[in-house]
Design a protein around this nucleic acid. Structure first.
Lengths: 337, 337
DNA sequence: TTGAAAGCGTTACCAT
DNA sequence: ATGGTAACGCTTTCAA
């Protein structure tokens, strides 16, 4: 392990004291222009770089943020993370990104590791297993700023999420108004607030249009491709199968699509579908999917800002809700007035 | 900024010396069982955690790796990064991930920042602008282990990449053998080794089957959606348009697909297409895309291993080439024997 | 078995 | 204007 050049090295080379070098390099008063010149020149020449660990040790400030995501390989999270990182970097912070694999135990471990690294704040997107929030509370007890994003929970903590109730409501209304009679809901388990919010929006829309709620059309399983696939196949095998599906997660959307295709059903003639997915994938599918568009850039930036605000002592802003938008394309049947 | 519990705190509480606490906590000999018991108990109770910065300062070992990617929001890179991170974590390392935005200047800045953070090694996927490698050389001069992955270069440095010549060759052969007469190539600029390798494979396949090389069918523009879109539209407007396209990057594949659809052409009846893309997106398009499948998990793991090997003083292994696989689906017309 | 002190890189404070 | 030194958390070497 090769060492870099330290202030002490420069001091020795010039026959002066470290403290003088420190002052010169920090641009503080109390150094003669001559000496200052010599010091900065030598520092540049030898490639002096301040050692952040010495600073951290002294001040406890690591200029580092921690991020925990369920799965960085999902485009949705990767996009959000990208913008958290951008915003952080613009403010002089580096990001340490950890992947919980959507598992509770791993999430706790990630948080502990980040605490060990003395990050100044942590942004967390909760795993689908998380129902216990002691690890979050521990952070708050330790006065480490936290922000929950995307997958949040009903706890007292700053957070940024999308308006899940409303976006699912809009999507369901669109399906009803396009003529769908039996709309199935494919979502996640109720313990995920995101999932229960979305289901709530779905049910609200049905009530609003005075449509009956059919229990057999509501699937709230594990958020995984396989679970989505078998749930959709079950739906399609019902004596009275749905003529529309609202899929509430990217993975489930993908699975539902595959299941429909594998059954030889036509979209939207036989069945309509709305999903949560990214713009460009929606554009490649055939037919192009009507989908709920979420602005990951906004979410990433807002999350970083909330974190940095807290680090800078501003504790006023608390909970930000972003609007998602329904993008109507060809996977939902045209209006039958 | 709240401080954690230090060894000194524990020492004071027990009325002993810090060094004794240190020995006890490290399980070193020279502490009475009694005292050791008391120290470890108190440490657990108060939630003592070693301060990594003090350790770093003393040993220069940060147990941290740096990663530089062109765009973390691309599924391809996000997948690779996920597995680098996993492998690193299994070996007690954390990862600091930086996004160069596919820009050279930003890539250099990322590397500098990572050096400042005193990461023990850096994995880099080069930006499409990078032709100057002094920042890589600087790392090697500083004895900081480096591994290039995915987008590599012809320099003396450990690296992991896919067999780009071969996968493009295979893809082209498949198009020829499916009956395509005028195969267009949509790739990146020659300065990207990945792109020139793939073009090389394309040309080799044509030669192998004694097909003429038509310059107007070879497009090597910027790797971006817009560039891919306009290049494909140009190809389709030729007096003699291609009856097959090989698109050599995910973005370009996506763009080519959109361009073809916008022109009202049918795949594969009017034109065949092979792309570089992810498995699940390929399954959602219609028709399902024939594509070159790259194993990101392997690449991520191998990259991390190469980095960790170097950190551990093993400098033998140098260059790993992974095989990509052609997955044949319905976007290439059936064999006309 | 335990204590004392030095050192890692930096800065702040006090002395010169 | 400059030097000396303590402090941050931890380990190691030497001394008791």
């Amino acid at each position: 392990m090769k060492k870099g050049v330290s202030q002490r090295d420069i001091a020795r080379l010039l026959g002066v004291n470290v403290s003088t070098v420190s002052r010169a390099l920090k641009g503080q008063p109390g150094v003669s222009p001559d000496l200052k010149q010599k010091i900065t020149e030598l520092a540049n020449e030898r490639g002096y770089r301040p050692n952040p660990f010495a600073m951290s040790l002294r001040y406890g400030a690591t200029r580092t943020l921690g991020i925990v995501v369920p799965d960085i390989s999902f485009s949705h999270y990767a996009h959000i993370v990208k913008w958290i990182e951008m915003e952080a970097r613009n403010n002089g912070y580096m990001c340490i990104i950890t992947d919980s694999g959507d598992k509770y135990v791993s999430e706790v471990e990630c948080v502990e590791r980040l605490m060990d690294m003395h990050v100044e704040g942590i942004a967390i997107c909760l795993s689908q297993e998380t129902t216990d929030f002691t690890h979050i509370k521990r952070l708050k007890d330790g006065n480490i700023p936290v922000v929950l994003f995307d997958r949040v929970a009903d706890i007292d903590c700053p957070m940024v999420n999308f308006n899940d109730v409303e976006s699912a409501r809009q999507a369901t209304l669109h399906l009803i108004d396009s003529g769908a009679q039996r709309i199935a809901y494919l979502g996640g388990p109720n313990r995920i607030k995101q999932a229960s919010d979305r289901k709530h929006g779905y049910l609200e829309a049905l009530k609003e249009r005075r449509r009956p709620i059919k229990k057999e059309l509501v699937k709230c399983g594990h958020v995984s491709f396989n679970s989505g696939l078998s749930d959709t196949l079950e739906l399609l095998s019902l004596p009275e199968p749905p003529d529309a599906i609202l899929a509430d997660f990217g993975l489930l959307t993908h699975a539902a699509f595959q299941a429909i295709v594998s059954k030889g059903l036509r979209i939207p003639q036989d069945i309509s579908i709305i999903g949560f997915m990214s713009d460009w994938v929606s554009g490649m599918s055939y037919p192009r999917m009507t989908f709920v568009k979420q602005n990951q850039r906004d979410m990433g930036r807002k999350t970083a800002k909330l974190l940095l605000d807290q680090i800078n002592g501003n504790t006023t802003i608390k909970h930000i809700v972003l609007n998602a938008q329904l993008n109507i394309r060809e996977s939902t049947s045209p209006l039958k007035t």
